[in-house]
Design a protein around this nucleic acid. Structure first.
Lengths: 220, 220
DNA sequence: GACAATAATATTGTTGGACAATTTTGAGGC
DNA sequence: GCCTCAAAATTGTCCAACAATATTATTGTC
């Protein structure tokens, strides 16, 4: 679950820091729009500035920070337009006519779904977010396309950045998601790909709507 | 056309080198499977090792090199499975039911097509490749989705890597492409998105087939 | 001669300090 | 208040060194 723990202890400092800093970005410790200064980070993590620079370059290539020459790195501030773009892309890869052409294993997806429902019931949003990601990645992953999976993973990272600018996240979207995920699981258990696609599309539309409302509220 | 020239002369050494080295990779100067050693590159480009390291990290995040701890960077060797995966993804974003939902400007696409045809006629494969990329990026770009465009750009970069392992590239695929592109342009001029999608799908299928035959031949 | 263990070498990972190039900040002057 | 220009802060790049790891060569043994 926690990528930090999953990382081999023999991993290099740079790798560990890249994971750690990206997690802190997602946690909101480095707020959107805020700058990440090299000397500051180097002092805080007790490493050389070179290491920080390499980490920041990695994060920049992943889209987790914006990088400009002589201006340094800052956490991107995603706009509502970005959120729409993300969901447009998600609909393409998750509910397009190519989606679920290889039907995912219903029991696997169902298992993740049950854990997700439990986390939501316990109001453990941290865990819920991870399981939500796992749910969608497992469905797309069934197609067996490394590039589609990688693209989805990138989109979901972007989505986390978008959620950072939506301050009043109250978990209602997750609560709604439980039922929507349930419909997808039911369709998969019935081996009905078309129905699953439609359920997925409804789910994505609803999630997009909730996010955008949230983001719009934050701009007033 | 040439990204190197497009780069502001005030750009940082690291940025220029990232462009330069990636171009040399695409040109086959650093062959697939070959290692990129830091000291060697640093000496050759007369820069510090740190610069090379940052460049390599950037390229790694872009998928242009594989990176492993203490083992360094090497140019990836794409497999036939990779090629299939790339075209599967391309079909999704270029000829899926979402594709060309915003109809591209036929005159713009047609203009690129004419230049492409001219380059192919002149057997300038270097230029032809760039114009081929421009053709497809312009069509997808019309949708106005930054993430779809970025994904396609990444897929086309991957495709260049795949072509590196297909040694006997003789330009026949480009010659065939001219007619196939022409059909797409014709459909766009007729404002017939469905026809354009079908023509695009046929084009991608043909290009995939040609590439895979080429790659298969190289493995004997 | 083939094979495993070990030593030597090559390569990457990380550090520290230094200085140049550029941007940002701040202080006057109008 | 706005512009100009110096001062400060920040990033870009270099050098030299050493530690950690991987690769290669060299043994020694059967």
């Amino acid at each position: 679950m926690d990528a930090l723990h999953a990382l081999d202890h023999r991993a290099t400092i740079t790798q560990r820091l890249a994971v750690q800093i990206s997690q802190r970005i997602f946690a909101g410790d480095y707020p959107p729009g805020g700058a990440l200064r090299e000397v500051e980070l180097a002092a805080h993590y007790d490493v050389s500035r070179h290491v920080i620079r390499e980490v920041l370059r990695t994060l920049a290539a992943d889209g987790l920070v914006d990088y400009a020459s002589f201006r340094g790195a800052r956490v991107p501030v995603l706009s509502i337009a970005d959120a729409r773009d993300i969901y447009r892309a998600r609909r393409l890869v998750e509910s397009g006519d190519e989606a679920m052409s290889v039907l995912p294993d219903a029991s696997l997806i169902g298992g993740i779904h049950r854990k997700f429902a439990k986390a939501v019931k316990a109001a453990d949003w941290e865990l819920a977010f991870d399981l939500d990601v796992a749910f969608h990645e497992a469905i797309v992953g069934a197609a067996g396309s490394a590039r589609m999976s990688a693209w989805l993973a990138g989109l979901l990272k972007d989505l986390r950045l978008a959620h950072l600018v939506a301050p009043s996240f109250n978990g209602q979207a997750f609560i709604d998601s439980v039922a929507q995920h349930g419909e997808i699981v039911a369709a998969l258990e019935a081996n009905d790909a078309a129905r699953a696609r439609k359920a997925m599309k409804r789910h994505l539309d609803a999630a997009e709507c909730a996010l955008i409302e949230d983001m719009a509220r934050s701009q007033n």
